[in-house]
């Protein structure tokens, strides 16, 4: 637990509860953190529930690809327990592939993935990893379009020791719109509702690590904001989060740390603010304009 406070600025007050870095007295007094998060997007004063037991995620020398084509050329990345880490970079740089490897959905050709200092390949595939607390929300719509909302939630119960009523309660409390459509076939929901349904999986089974792949894709800004509010809350609860996001500002607002991935390599790692400035150049700047 103490790693958490040292690594990412989460700190334990004398009352035994955990507080967000921005509330740390040192920050207020002007004493800089080792890796200060300039604008932590965590709602102030949120209490970290100790039972979350956040885990660190570490990628060591990861190489991976499709067929004979290598996409990741040796990635080293450490996501400390309880931190929110944003991966930025141009399309096709390998960010999604990186998340796939981290979530056990793809076997690296070299290197290893460590969750809470345990090598994950000993867990088996993505299913075993999911049950061990690594929750992947994939790119696109991570739902089963031919099943109803409720049936999707039923499948989400595979992830942890929870029962359907409990999952329904949590999901509908968080996303009331889903509650109104529990018997509707998921494929006929709007894009935002589909993403909420996908996201509901992060709410069940007490995941320790959350891997989010462009959850904003194709969604209206209001819905994106709503989803990121949940991300902020999950972060505040102490879940370790590694996210890929095309919207720099959105990502930076919630992240405590960030990196740019270009051509399958981590080009730079740093505080979200620094990285954001650089990533924006990659996206919109343009030398010829």
């Amino acid at each position: 637990m103490s790693e958490v406070s040292q690594g990412e600025g989460w700190w334990q007050a004398s009352d035994g509860k955990w507080y967000a870095p921005s509330l740390h007295p040192d920050v207020a007094s002007g004493e800089p953190e080792p890796e200060p998060a300039p604008e932590p997007g965590v709602p102030a004063g949120v209490v970290v529930s100790p039972e979350r037991n956040p885990a660190s995620l570490e990628l060591v020398g990861i190489r991976a690809g499709y067929g004979r084509i290598e996409v990741l050329h040796g990635i080293d990345l450490t996501v400390p327990a309880g931190s929110v880490f944003a991966l930025l970079g141009p399309n096709g740089a390998g960010k999604s592939t990186l998340l796939k490897v981290a979530g056990g959905r793809m076997r690296p050709t070299a290197g290893k993935v460590l969750v809470a200092d345990h090598e994950t390949h000993r867990h088996g595939g993505a299913d075993a990893l999911a049950r061990a607390g690594v929750c992947s929300i994939p790119e696109g719509r991570g739902i089963f379009p031919n099943l109803t909302v409720r049936e999707n939630l039923l499948i989400w119960t595979y992830q942890g020791k929870v029962r359907l009523p409990e999952v329904e309660e949590r999901a509908y409390a968080r996303f009331p719109k889903l509650g109104q459509r529990r018997k509707q076939v998921a494929g006929t929901l709007s894009g935002g509702e589909q993403q909420m349904l996908a996201f509901a999986r992060a709410l069940v089974g007490n995941p320790r690590v959350l891997l989010l792949d462009e959850i904003s894709m194709g969604l209206a800004p209001l819905i994106v904001a709503e989803l990121y509010e949940v991300v902020g809350q999950l972060a505040a609860e102490g879940i370790t989060i590694l996210l890929v996001e095309q919207f720099i500002q959105t990502a930076v607002a919630v992240a405590t740390r960030a990196a740019i991935v270009v051509h399958g390599r981590v080009e730079r790692e740093g505080s979200p603010a620094e990285i954001a400035a650089e990533a924006a150049e990659h996206y919109l700047a343009g030398s010829g304009g």
Partner: peptide, 21 residues
């Protein structure tokens, strides 16, 4: 749950695995 998962698996086995089945 098993039955519902059976209806889902062909559509997206990868997602089913991510969900822990």
């Amino acid at each position: 749950r098993t039955g519902v998962a059976m209806r889902a698996v062909v559509d997206d086995p990868d997602l089913l695995a991510m969900a822990g089945a």
